[in-house]
Nucleic acid binder design. Sequence first.
RNA 1: GACCCUAUCGUCCAGUGGCCUAGGACACCGCCCUUUCACGGCGGUGACACGAGUUCGAAUCUCGUUAGGGUCGCCA
Length: 442
Amino acid sequence: MSSNVRVRFAPSPTGYLHVGGARTALFNWLFARHTGGTFILRIEDTDKARNTEAATQAIYDGLNWLGLDWDEGPFKGGNHGPYFQSEREDIYLRYFNKLKDAGHLYEEENGSWRFKSLRKVVKFDDLVCGHVEFDMSNAEIHPDITIRRPDGGWIFHFVNVVDDIEMGMTHVIRGEDHLSNTPKHVELYEALGVPHPQFAHIPLILNRDGSKMSKRDQGAAVGGYMEQGYAPEAVVNFLCLLGWSPKENREIFDIKEIIERFDLAHINRKAASFDLEKCHWMNVQYLLHMSLERFTQLARPFIDRAAIPYKNDAELTAVLAIVKEKTKQLDEVPDRISFFFTEDYAYEDEGVEKALKVPGALDKLTALAAAFEASETWTPEAIEATLKGTAAANGWKNKELIHPSRIAVSGRSVGPSLYHMMEVLGKDRTVARIRKTVEKFK
RNA sequence: GACCCUAUCGUCCAGUGGCCUAGGACACCGCCCUUUCACGGCGGUGACACGAGUUCGAAUCUCGUUAGGGUCGCCA
């Protein structure tokens, strides 16, 4: 399916990619993918003083991580480039002269240029907000906008409109903070003699307490989700449901389902508060239900960064398979698996007190090690049978073996399923670790 | 302050005049499952901002008030 829909995400590289910006990008992307249109990335770097390389890179990284691929833009090219505003000087000059010749501009004493408002009532139908009217007739309420700096630099309102014309945008989907700017833009389109694109102003994202979400707020930077080990598909799913709803009473939708269902008409008009806890829950759901292959792929950078000394992928995968269901964020993985790969694992104080430093615990472990050593098969079921059999034969409770042996083989009181953990460790290492522990705490 | 947008559980959504004694999810509180921790299951607390209308009937329509957000830059 293809269509003539053309939408863009036009960030300014002045900081980190914000979740609000990411959601704007996401809604544009979804609209393009739903309609079979084209999604364009345009970098609005007109403010030389504030733009940075790092910020530009953060935009690429964030979009790539979220899976929001663009059809035209940096690295991709396209027939409407360049896609950096800093490289479009000649185009702006052309439009500037056009406006100037038509008498729409005037120069200030300091050398900046302003656009003379048409001083009429501006009306437009916003795809999200509905019919909107602004009475622009009063210059005190709506002063003429500046479009060019004394140094020749261009101002957002002007270049944004020029590029949207030149790049053939059919829809402008952006944050509601631009709604009040829109009548100015509509006037620019009119002065240029070009019909304006359709507008869709999506509500802003607020903090839990209703305040505006700013860069410093928790959960604000997309980079934070990458570092903490959220699954990108979970963050995407969460963001989709923030201000838009497929009208079904469920929460988990894969991206294909969302693309099928997405439409601008069902975007909420109300600003949404960002609930990090729900995002976290959604991430847990994704981690729990994704394939082991996907989990391994997502966890690997964290494991490598922590320099976990696994021998080969088979060994690593076997371990990941049993910690996957407990993992809530990928950045926990190195800690959750570290004890599998060293005999020099640390013992957790509280667990040692409760499970090992109790009368008889070490003797019971010794008996358990002997029983394990004598066992023929080493499957979770067999291990469980051996453990419970040992307990029963001696008149002990199962948990009198379970808790001490968990501490003995892992150093911890919490972790994966005990029998699966022992299976992955193997019989020899399990027995050796139990005996080593007995010696250590004698 | 002016202009614009908005207003359902603490939060995210459902609800577009009767199906609502308002539904789902997160969080929270019980109970159950269980070798730990989770997961899961069951149940519970909890909302139509307020006031006038319109209508036989309003969470749903209109107006006002209040509240929140946005814009008013030589930032985007």
